[in-house]
């Protein structure tokens, strides 16, 4: 059986295309129409995409990652238990934590630790959000919706524990929606380092 060969003609230019001038006129008229529409046309018909930034702001998506905050417990202390999960997960290695024990008479003693120093270098941070993913206690969040305030000094970008605790979330709260079960609460499982599982 002979194969049927489909012959595709080589595209040829017409004389009008070869003469260049009509094509030039076509191109210029297209660009000109665009120009007139965007410059002198009615505002509704303009298609300008530019956002005049400081005066106009584009709304960020709901899960936008702003600067970090440390969430608080009901008594205002940090939820963070200094487990170092976030600083381990951080690809930029910009979280520095010094863990400390609670006092022995504290109900949390032996159950969890707290961060004596919690420092994030926001200039090094790449805003990947891995720290938030890693945290088992919902203690670190990036739901502030804020940019870093600009500054001329690098020191101003080292956010310490107090600063991070003082930044509210987008909804204005310092807490999170996840409830916490403090030692001594009826809902608390009552397991700690000494008594074990």
């Amino acid at each position: 059986m002979p194969a049927t060969v489909k012959v595709i003609k080589k595209p040829r230019r017409t004389i009008a295309e070869q003469a260049y001038v009509p094509e030039v006129a076509k191109g210029i008229s297209f660009a000109a129409r665009r120009f007139f529409k965007n410059t002198f046309g009615p505002t509704a018909k303009k298609e300008i995409d530019t956002v005049k930034y400081p005066e106009e702001k584009r709304e960020y998506p709901e899960r936008f990652r702003g600067i970090h905050r440390l969430t608080q417990r009901f008594d205002g202390s940090p939820r963070c238990v200094a487990c170092l999960c976030c600083s381990t997960a951080c690809p930029a290695q910009c979280i520095y934590i010094e863990a400390a024990e609670y006092e022995p008479d504290d109900p949390r003693y032996g159950y969890e630790r707290y961060p004596a120093v919690f420092m994030i270098d926001e200039l090094r941070c790449i805003f990947c959000g891995y720290c938030v993913e890693a945290c088992p206690c919902d203690a670190i969040r990036m739901d502030t919706g804020m940019h870093m305030p600009p500054s001329t000094s690098r020191d101003h970008f080292l956010y310490d524990k107090e600063t991070l605790l003082s930044i509210p979330g987008k909804d204005g709260t310092y807490l999170t929606a996840n409830p916490r079960h403090e030692p001594g609460d009826p809902s608390h499982p009552g397991i700690d380092r000494e008594r074990g599982h």
């Binding site: 660009a31 665009r34 995409d49």
Partner: peptide, 9 residues
């Protein structure tokens, strides 16, 4: 002008 052609400001 070039910006206006390209839908920019």
């Amino acid at each position: 002008q070039s910006a206006m052609i390209q839908d920019r400001l």
